[in-house]
Design a binder for these strands. Structure first.
Lengths: 249, 249
DNA sequence: CAAACTTATGCAAAAAAATGCAAATAATTG
DNA sequence: CAATTATTTGCATTTTTTTGCATAAGTTTG
């Protein structure tokens, strides 16, 4: 049996059963466990399955991917969240994108604040459920499994029909020249619609994301009304942003 | 069983029941309590659940309303869910209401089944996220905190614009004369719209709910295509339903 | 506060992974 | 075709991970 055949067989097995045991495969395919181990290693590197102790599992199986970022820079994100919250007043209508920064914002919202929140993000919506004085309105649509966000024409349509006070726009990358950029085209559409739907656009960004770029552009830097980072307000990195007429906190 | 699988199972259990007992998991998964304890510890560190004395609880979810029904009649509900799932075929488009029975249905969906699922229920949508072959489309709108379901004009509008194969309509009360009834007016509107949006309406109902009534009516009993209960198909209680031309499983 | 239960810790056995090496097989080239 | 080179595979050894158990320490509850 060819190596290719064997790997295809393993992949298929993973697709059907969502998992394979190393021992089973070695047994079934009549090769040593080392061989299977090497196969799985390769397939893992090609991102066709996930290697785990004792075998492999399907990639789609545990799609919690956003939770992986969870720990990373959490402290900075809480800092940013606090700054964001300080801007809020009772009765305001918000629009929250997904992402861990907005998750943190949702988590830290004081329970006595009365707000209306639109969001297309399942985790954010869930988080907001525990705030008794927050009215949650979910922007529906096809849910992207990786980001757990509603996307597509339906979601964009709904966004086109609303106007909120403040949009907290989580972003992957922000750059003085390139503006706000994303790696996923559909997300770009969503974020464009969200900016349109909001009187004021605030971008909470951890400093690592400053001056980085992705493939697709959401908008120029001028279209952001305010930038919130965990850095001190007079940090060098922020001077240029301020000079472009963007409020920095 | 792989470690990954076990942890996924625990996570899933937490998602559905909002909590797990260490002892239950050890028992169910046939491993020592130490192993479960270590699993929970890891998952806690990854912020996927919250470790507590004696087990773990969900972090994203606060279900005041769910927790009650959750335990109650769970076995019957799984039984019903199994029957429901047996009706499904690859490629079908479903519409799922909220409620614990549909939660159970979503939880038990085999991972290899390819479906498109519309739902206005946050917990159900969440549950469906873990099914790699299910396309989830959230019917957005204002979220009612108690039921964690989108409601209101926006949601009803969306429902009016779709047509699906099967609707699994969770119901509070069903009665031969009064038909399907609810105690909340808004929910009635949602359910009416859902029935309209579906070619086939299936009502999964635990036997306790048979021949009970509430204040507001959704529809006559004739508008249900099929009734699924945990009872044996020739149970006395069901004869009359069948005589009204409703298929009973 | 004391009994019942839960957690933490260290330890050892078992299972699996990584590594280096050699034989077998396949591919390439003069 | 023969010789060389590269790839694949299995085996032995070491290292790491996983798991269960025993014991001690901490929590919960009546």
């Amino acid at each position: 049996m060819l190596k290719e055949e064997r790997q295809q067989f393993i992949l298929n097995e993973v697709r059907v059963h969502n998992r394979v045991l190393l021992t089973d495969m070695a047994d079934l395919l009549k090769v040593s466990m080392d061989t299977i181990r090497r196969d799985i290693k390769e397939l893992h590197k090609e991102k066709k399955l996930k290697k785990v102790h004792g075998g492999a599992i399907s990639l789609g199986f545990n799609n919690y991917s956003f939770q992986f970022n969870e720990v990373y820079s959490l402290e900075k994100k809480s800092k940013i969240a606090v700054k964001c919250i300080s801007l809020l007043r009772n009765g305001q209508v918000l629009l929250l994108t997904g992402g861990t920064t907005n998750m943190e914002l949702a988590r830290m919202l004081p329970t006595n604040l009365t707000l209306t929140c639109f969001t297309p993000s399942l985790p954010v919506a869930n988080q907001l459920m525990s705030k008794p004085n927050v009215e949650v309105i979910f922007v529906g649509g096809k849910i992207a499994k990786d980001a757990q966000i509603a996307m597509g024409a339906a979601a964009v349509n709904i966004l086109n029909s609303i106007k909120v006070d403040i949009c907290f726009l989580g972003t992957h990358s922000i750059d003085l020249d390139e503006g706000l950029t994303e790696f996923d085209w559909e997300i770009v559409q969503m974020k464009k619609a969200m900016m349109q739907a909001s009187r004021k656009v605030i971008a909470p960004v951890i400093s690592e994301k400053l001056n980085t770029k992705q493939r697709y552009r959401i908008c120029d830097i001028q279209h952001i009304d305010m930038l919130i980072t965990e850095l001190d307000a007079n940090d060098d990195k922020l001077i240029e942003f301020r000079s472009k007429n963007i409020e920095v906190l």
